[in-house]
């Protein structure tokens, strides 16, 4: 089932939680909505589900305008951050709930519902827990049951709101892999919300990076990481160091000296210069490169993280050195970023 979001706007009281959001999702894709809290990602998910309604714009399931349908009519599967299991029902009753509340002419028999629940429990790798109550399950097990319950109604689209947000780090990692497997088995078009970039990068076919109610960038993990289109995406995804620079005739200047890099942007303006700490060449000395005084040096696992002050204490950047690199002992280090990006300030 394709999913098309067209010009969605959502106002809460007087602030816009979402503003001009459009998005196309192909059938069978696994999409991550990634952003800091307050970016509007959960609101977008709830609008797709029909748990909230947009101020303007529409949501299409395939060719069909779903915006005019209630949540019950949309036939989606929704997995909540805190599971939202019915605690007075057994695991089997929870999974069978969506089938049980159907109008009587569409309803499956009791034994069929039971059989479906059993099968889904096997799919989510919890066979034999039919008669447990949610209170008797671990967090990870509850979330598996919640997913089985959402899948039971054969949803057209699967929506997951921070599905692993309430779980321990180790369980999160296991469930991440497991969710990817389930997705590949069932082939549902799926959208999940997360603020954890590692989760998004590892799990999703494509990422939608959101900030302040708008979509910043849509792309695969490679595209988002290697070609960030905005300062926000550059600093939100992965680690980055930033310097305020000036662009003069395509040449990049930090304060009163050039740093030896050129950009295609010919506009003479102020800008922000971004690079990844691990993506640098260490030089022995330079004319026209970046060099700074070592402020601190910490050993981080396989590398050494060095903090440098460049051209005065107000410009601080971090770079990574191999742990045994001789530069680690120096008080001044020169380097040049291998990949970098400069964003001219729009004035």
């Amino acid at each position: 089932m394709n999913l098309h979001i067209r010009g969605i706007r959502k106002d809460f009281d007087r602030f816009a939680a979402l503003d001009g959001v459009s998005l196309d999702i192909a059938s069978g894709e696994l999409i991550a909505l990634l952003g800091p809290s307050g970016s509007g990602k959960t609101t977008l998910l709830r609008l797709i589900a029909g748990l909230d309604f947009p101020t303007d714009g529409s949501v299409f399931f395939g060719e069909e305008d779903a915006s005019r349908k209630s949540v019950q009519e949309r036939n989606i599967g929704f997995v909540f951050q805190h599971y939202a299991l019915f605690r007075h029902m057994t695991v089997a009753e929870n999974i069978g709930f969506g089938l049980k509340v159907r109008p009587s002419r569409e309803r499956l028999s009791r034994t069929e519902i039971r059989a479906r629940a059993k099968k889904l429990l096997e799919l989510v790798q919890l066979p034999g827990l039919e008669n447990r109550y949610p209170a008797q399950l671990s967090g990870g097990q509850r979330q598996r049951v919640a997913l089985a319950r959402a899948l039971a109604v054969e949803p057209r689209i699967l929506l997951l709101d921070e599905p692993f947000g309430a779980l321990d780090a180790q369980v999160r990692r296991d469930l991440r892999r497991w969710l990817r497997d389930i997705h590949d088995t069932t082939g549902h078009t799926s959208v999940f919300v997360t603020h954890d970039q590692e989760e998004a990068l590892e799990l999703a076919d494509r990422l939608v990076v959101m900030n302040k109610g708008r979509i910043e960038q849509i792309g695969t993990a490679d595209e988002i990481y290697d070609e960030p289109v905005s300062p926000f995406v550059y600093s939100f995804i992965g680690e980055s160091s930033q310097l305020p620079v000036r662009i003069v005739n395509g040449e990049i200047w930090l304060e009163d000296r050039t740093i030896g890099l050129r950009t295609h942007d010919q506009s003479n303006s102020e800008g922000a210069f971004y690079f990844r700490p691990h993506d640098v060449d260490i030089l022995d000395g330079c004319g026209g490169c970046l060099a700074g005084t070592v402020l601190s040096s910490r050993r981080v696992a396989g590398t050494r993280r060095v903090e440098l002050a460049i051209g005065g204490p107000q410009h601080r950047v971090e770079i990574d050195l191999p742990a045994d690199h001789p530069a680690a002992t120096r008080s001044r280090i020169a380097f040049r970023p291998k990949h970098w990006k400069v964003f001219a300030e729009r004035s």
């Binding site: 748990l51 929704f78 805190h82 939202a84 019915f86 709930f97 509340v101 919640a146």
Partner: peptide, 17 residues
């Protein structure tokens, strides 16, 4: 928890159900 009621709605249950 409101999300439990929302969960029921996403599974197709009417408000009365």
């Amino acid at each position: 928890n409101r999300d439990v009621e929302e969960a029921a709605a996403t599974l197709g249950a009417s408000r009365l159900q």
